[in-house]
Design a protein around this nucleic acid. Structure first.
Lengths: 89, 89
DNA sequence: TAGATATTTAGATACTTCTTTAATTATCGA
DNA sequence: TCGATAATTAAAGAAGTATCTAAATATCTA
């Protein structure tokens, strides 16, 4: 079920851009929101979907919640894509 | 734009199953539909999205339309995933 | 050319997702 | 404890998606 959630999470450009940002460094929810024109609740919604798909971790540090990449599911995605990009089998 | 369409196309379980079937061998639209409980127009709709995302080719052979994998975009997907599964950069 | 088969296109409806504003929860610092 | 800051949750509307039935298009065969 997780892989399905992952694919659904990846189907949105905003969420993929969030992952791109987190690839550079860990960020708070507010810092992430600053990169977009949409409201913080919208970003919070996207972060929640990424979290449910286990593509990111969240960690509260005082007032802030720090988001970081969770590379585990990317490994599964990699396997899935490899089946298709490495010829018939 | 193609990568976005690809991610959207992959976000549906039916479409991913279609790709799984085509990984084994080329199939006509009817043969693909036989693997699902939904109607042929629904499958046709999914095939169209896969085609627009350039994940499959279609080739009419008489009455039949034969679908096959187009691995080109999978290469791009592979690169995208690799950026995340191969550590920070 | 007529009938049969394979597939898609059109139109409609139900469902899901995205986004917003308003309200709520959690934490910090004085 | 109060006020400020950070972030989420709730509720609602708009837009997008999946699915169905019915109709249309393309091709084959007799």
């Amino acid at each position: 079920m997780t892989l399905n959630q992952a694919f659904k999470a990846l189907s949105d450009p905003t969420r993929r851009k969030i992952l791109d940002l987190l690839k550079e460094r860990d960020l708070t929810a507010g810092e992430i929101a600053d990169h977009f024109q949409m409201t913080k609740p919208s970003i919070s919604h996207h972060l929640n979907l990424l979290k449910q798909a286990q593509l990111v971790w969240d960690d509260r540090q005082g007032q802030h919640i720090i988001y970081s990449l969770n590379t585990t599911v990317f490994q599964d995605l990699l396997k899935w894509v490899l089946h298709f990009s490495s010829g018939k089998e």
